[in-house]
């Protein structure tokens, strides 16, 4: 991986190394971003912004954290920036009231459960949502999360518990 960073930082090899980087991470980052914005078009925009930012700033990358963590940090920040600048536009297709009409979680299908989960996620504060996505969907160890979010592992655990509890309560109540 260090070799890839070196190649990314040299003008002659930057382009081919950048393609390798995209091959390695585009899918993971796509799903990560999707959890924030909930639709393909917006995910595509944010993912493009993420990689363009990586292209522009790779020269400043100093190996203080892993390339993987750095990419997730950029992707998360880009997603949050995107959400904040489009707050009115981005809404979960199903609002809280309609979620209640879907039915009891025991009896509903996968797609509907996913919608309920999305609605529950929308209730979380930004940071808590980010922590929940990294742990629940990306199944990331706290150590790596700590690198990405620059927060202590203890604080992350506490925050994840709160987030999971809130979502559980939401699912039970709606």
């Amino acid at each position: 991986m260090e070799n890839l960073v070196e190649q990314l930082q040299q003008l002659e090899t930057k382009e081919s190394a950048f393609k390798t980087l995209m091959d390695l991470y585009q899918r993971k980052l796509y799903f990560h971003i999707f959890r924030f914005v909930n639709n393909h078009e917006d995910t595509n925009d944010v993912l493009q912004n993420t990689f363009i930012k990586v292209w522009r700033n790779i020269g400043n990358f100093r190996n203080e954290c892993s390339l993987y963590s750095w990419l997730y940090r950029i992707a998360g920040n880009e997603a949050i920036t995107f959400i904040n600048s489009n707050k009115k536009r981005i809404t979960v297709d199903v609002d809280t009231k309609n979620v209640a009409n879907i039915g009891n979680v025991d009896s509903i299908e996968g797609d509907k459960i996913e919608l309920k989960l999305q609605a529950a996620l929308e209730q979380l504060p930004e940071k808590q949502k980010q922590i929940f996505i990294l742990r629940y969907y990306d199944e990331m160890p706290y150590k790596e999360m700590s690198e990405i979010l620059e927060t202590s592992e203890g604080a992350l655990k506490a925050s994840y518990y709160h987030a999971a509890k809130k979502i559980e309560t939401f699912l039970l109540e709606h």
């Binding site: 393909h40 999971a164 979502i167 559980e168």
Partner: peptide, 17 residues
């Protein structure tokens, strides 16, 4: 912490790309 949420995860639909 959240047994219901834990059981749901396996059933969640795939993102369509």
């Amino acid at each position: 912490v959240a047994p219901l949420l834990n059981s749901l995860k396996k059933e969640s639909s795939e993102v369509v790309i």
